[in-house]
Structure formats: C-alpha cells, structure tokens
Amino acid sequence: MQKRAMEVAAVSHNHPEGIKGAVVTSTCIWMARHDKSRQEIYEYVLEQYPVKDYKYSIGYSLDEMRPRYKWDVSCQGSVPAAMRCFYESTDYESFIRNI
C-alpha cells in the first residue's frame, strides 16, 4: 500500500516531503479503515513528523499551533496539522471546526 502511494504521488508531488505526505495520509486512512485507534494513528504520524524536526508536528496541540500557524501549502506544513485536527476531533463537524 505504501509503495503504491509513493508511485502515485511521485507523478504530482515531485518532492520527497510531498511524497512522504501522500504516504502518511494514505497510511492513516488505511489504519482508520482497519480499526486502528486514534492513539495508534497519532503515534504513527508523530514518528513521521517529530516535534524536533517539524514546525507543525502533530505533537503540538491545536492551542499551541494556532497562534503561529500560517497556511502552508507544503505537505510538512499541512499534513501533520490536519492530522492534529483529526486527533482532537470527536466527529466530522468538530474536525472541520478545528481547521
């Protein structure tokens, strides 16, 4: 699954971080569809985007992120932040409101 995500993303993303973001996103979807817990998904994303290396790591709460977050079109600037919105949500509406 991850290999296929890399192959598909390479066509449009053309950057290692872009491909990584596509793989992380597809892996999270796969995990959710295979009954992995929010915590397991969180831990996976945190491994991929650790706090020490990423400005918008999933390791930062939304309250910590909001004052300094600026829209970032890159995968490293949007994927972990979006996954944090998911992690702190309780349903689809709260996810959208977290954004």
Rank of each mutant, 00 (worst) to 15 (best):
D35P: 07
K3F: 07
E64I: 04
P50Q: 06
K20S: 06
S12A: 13
Q48E: 11
A5N: 08
I99T: 03
E64D: 13
M31L: 11
I29W: 07
R97T: 00
P67I: 05
C85R: 12
Y92Q: 14
A9F: 09
V24I: 07
C75I: 00
S89F: 11
K55L: 13
P16M: 04
P16S: 11
S37A: 05
K20I: 03
D53N: 14
E47F: 01
R66M: 06
M6W: 09
G21A: 08
R68T: 15
D63N: 13
Q39F: 06
Y42I: 00
Y54P: 09
D72W: 02
S37C: 09
L46K: 14
H15S: 06
L46E: 15
S78W: 05
Y49W: 03
P67D: 05
G21H: 09
R66Y: 00
D63A: 14
M83K: 14
A22R: 00
I19G: 08
A10H: 05
S57F: 03
K55W: 02
V24P: 06
Y92N: 12
L62D: 08
R97L: 06
G59H: 13
H13E: 10
R66N: 12
Y44T: 02
C85T: 01
W71S: 03
E17K: 13
Y56S: 09
H13R: 07
E64T: 14
V8R: 02
R33D: 08
V73A: 05
A9I: 01
E93M: 14
C75D: 08
F86S: 01
P50S: 11
V23N: 09
N14K: 15
S78K: 07
A9C: 14
A22N: 07
S74A: 04
P16D: 05
K20G: 11
L46Y: 10
A82F: 09
Y69K: 08
K70N: 07
H34R: 12
M1T: 11
M1P: 09
H15G: 04
R68E: 10
G59C: 04
